[in-house]
């Protein structure tokens, strides 16, 4: 028997909300521990880096175009071009390269 998709959606919604909201609501003061504060300071950079590579070479049709998009994106971001421009540059890099390859 097939389970009900709406119950699945309900289970997901409740579970994911608890994961997201519990720390946010339970901790309202500044954390005192130096280690924890530094740890949390580095978390976003670490998580985003881990999710970027090697994922960027796995999502494109050709891993080479993903790799070049990564390098071009790093350069564009280094030049402080801003979210929107860097994003567009990466997309166009892949579009052009996969047209050529």
């Amino acid at each position: 028997m097939k389970n009900n998709i709406y119950i699945y959606i309900l289970v997901m919604t409740v579970t994911v909300y608890l994961v997201r909201v519990l720390p946010l609501t339970l901790i309202r003061r500044q954390i005192k521990s130096r280690f924890i504060r530094d740890f949390l300071y580095y978390v976003p950079y670490v998580t985003l880096s881990v999710m970027t590579f090697p994922a960027i070479i796995d999502v494109t049709e050709n891993p080479i175009s993903g790799l070049i998009a990564l390098l071009v994106g790093i350069y564009a971001a280094y030049k402080e071009m801003g979210l929107f421009k860097v994003t567009l540059i990466c997309c166009f890099t892949v579009l052009i390269l996969e047209f050529l390859i």
Binding site: P44, Y45, L48, S49, M51, T52, A55, I56, V59, T60, E61, N62, S65, G66, A69, L70, G73, I74, A76, A77, Y78, E80, M81, G82, L83, K85, V86, T87, L88, I89, C90, C91, F92, T93, V94, L95, E98, F99
Partner: peptide, 22 residues
Amino acid sequence: IRIVSALSVALYGMFLAIIIPP
């Protein structure tokens, strides 16, 4: 498929724009 492939790096481009400048 080429369009999907190009669009799929958008997210990572954005991640780079956030982590590289700092």
